[in-house]
Simulated scan of single mutants.
Amino acid sequence: MSRTLVVTNDFPPRQGGIQTFVAALLATRPAGSLVVLASDHPGAREHDAALPYEVVRAPTGMLLPTRATARTAARLAREHGCRTAFFGAAAPLGALAPGLRRAGVARLVGATHGHETGWVALPGARQAMQRIAGGLDVLTYISRYTHSRLAPALAGRTELVQLSPGVDVDRFSPAADGGPVRERYGLGDAPVVVCVSRLVPRKGQDTLVRGWSQVLARHPRARLLLVGGGPSEAALRKEVRARGLGHSVVLTGGVAPERLPEHYAAGDVFAMPCRTRRAGLDVEGLGMVFLEAAACGLPVVAGTSGGAPETVLEGVTGHVVDPRSPSAVASVLADLLDDPARARAMGAAGRGWVEQRWSWTTIGQTFAALLEP
């Protein structure tokens, strides 16, 4: 059986959206059909021992397209007879493609996520991205938004195919029990708006806090549950205190990935009013949290950044709001809390849409077709 060589800096046990995406993609492939070259990380040995394919760890915490990496990748391709190669993030590791072709790899596929849209906006990085694309047979994109940024800059240098992240619809399910989370944070039976994300300015947790008093004016018992950690945590806690919201806003800090479904399930509405920053360089490529929330049966409120609106069927599974207006965000949240039956119907519609369009079964079929055309 011909194997696929996977070259990726983004791989568990390191946590992050790209790492989760890459690992889930690889889990859709037949056992023994892969060999992975990845960067090292604490806990890697124990993690790799449980996988049904070989993982080779380079002695570095950051895998870059150096000569040493190129030699190792070419050696693995030859030793394992790899006819295909997949780059977990095309920028910058896709620069290794020409050397892998010389090593006998016939088909090269590179994935893009969100950061590549920043690359193509900057002259020097754009040229590097163009060179990478020219060495690949296929470059994947995660959303129509990222395609709209990549396609003009790459100007036909390679084929572009959509390969979005998927959702584990068995883990993220309306059957998840949010009761223990509600009990842990003293939420009781209050209506809860939940946001699951890293605490960084782009995600819009600050907008939720700034508009929360407006929600409380209509729903005094409501609670805002901010799940996750990150650089903005201290500033958010300070803002909560300054606004006198300590009784109704809960920040959980970091949460282990396996416990995320129960945190979604603790909410009645999911909201993350993400906004684009830094003149378009800091943007939401897609937003998996919206799809995970929908899979758990929650109505979703998303911001307008990048590909985030593509995760919502407006008025059917949720709403897209102006992320720079705390008042507009609060009004939409309060309206959903006003009508629990409507909110539940949106959640049910979202669950059905995720099962149909965003499950890993569907995404895995696309991935297989890219590797085995």
Results as ranks from 00 to 15, higher is better:
His115Glu: 07
Pro123Asn: 15
Arg278Glu: 12
Leu208Arg: 02
Met272Lys: 11
Arg57Cys: 04
Gly315Glu: 00
Ala222Tyr: 01
Tyr145Lys: 02
Ala176Cys: 13
Arg342Met: 10
Ile142Phe: 03
Ile363Leu: 09
Arg67Asn: 00
Ser327Pro: 05
Gly352Met: 06
Thr252Ser: 05
Leu100Asp: 04
Phe290Trp: 05
Phe87Cys: 06
His47Met: 04
Ala74Val: 06
Val6Pro: 13
Val22Ala: 12
Arg67Lys: 01
Gly43Leu: 15
Leu5Gly: 11
Phe11Trp: 09
Gln19Met: 14
Thr311Tyr: 11
Val209Ile: 14
Arg243Met: 13
Leu337Lys: 03
Gly156Ser: 07
Ser143Glu: 00
Phe270Ile: 13
Ala293Thr: 05
Gly280Ile: 08
Gly178Ala: 03
Arg184Val: 06
Ser248Ala: 11
Val109Asn: 04
Glu233Phe: 09
Ala302Leu: 13
Phe11Pro: 08
Ser2Asn: 11
Ala70Gln: 04
Gly253Lys: 05
Val249Met: 08
Tyr145Phe: 14
Met62Asp: 13
Ala369Asn: 05
Glu159His: 08
Leu122Asp: 09
Ala341Ile: 12
Ala24Arg: 08
Asp189Glu: 12
Gly211Trp: 01
Gly306His: 07
Val329Met: 00
Thr84Phe: 04
Gly350Leu: 07
His147Gln: 07
Ala256Leu: 08
Met1Leu: 04
His47Asp: 04
Ala348Arg: 08
Ala73Gln: 02
Pro309Leu: 01
Val193Arg: 01
Leu154Cys: 01
Thr8Leu: 11
Phe290Tyr: 10
Ala27Lys: 01
Glu262Asn: 07
Ala294Asn: 00
Pro30Cys: 02
Thr252Ala: 06
Glu258His: 02
Thr207Pro: 10
Gly254Asp: 14
Ala242Thr: 05
Glu372Leu: 09
Gly253Gln: 01
Thr366Arg: 12
His115Val: 07
Arg241Phe: 05
Met346Pro: 11
Val192Arg: 12
Gly16Asn: 02
Ala368Lys: 03
Arg351Phe: 03
Leu37Ile: 14
Glu258Val: 04
Leu225Ser: 09
Gly99Ala: 14
Leu313Lys: 09
Val255Asn: 09
Glu79Ile: 15
Gly285Met: 12
Glu262His: 07
Thr69Gln: 01
Arg221Cys: 13
Arg102Ile: 12
Gly306Leu: 08
His113Arg: 09
His41Trp: 13
Asp10Leu: 10
Gly43Asn: 14
Trp119Ile: 12
Ser248Pro: 01
Ala294Ser: 09
Ser305Arg: 10
Pro231Cys: 02
Thr311Ser: 14
Ser331Asn: 03
Glu372Phe: 11
His263Phe: 07
Ala271Ser: 15
Ala348Cys: 07
Gly307Met: 09
Gly81Ser: 03
Arg259Leu: 08
Trp212Cys: 13
Ser164Pro: 15
Ser39Lys: 09
Tyr53Ile: 15
Arg149Ser: 07
Gly287Leu: 12
Ala334Thr: 00
Gly280His: 09
Leu64Val: 08
Glu239Val: 02
Asp168Gly: 05
Leu139Tyr: 00
Asp177His: 13
Val193Pro: 11
Ala155Trp: 10
Gly285Glu: 02
Pro98Glu: 05
Gln19Leu: 12
Val300Leu: 14
Arg184Phe: 08
Cys195Ala: 15
Ser39Cys: 13
Arg29Met: 08
Gly114Tyr: 04
Ala349Leu: 15
Glu239Ile: 01
Leu163Arg: 04
Gly43Trp: 14
Pro340Leu: 11
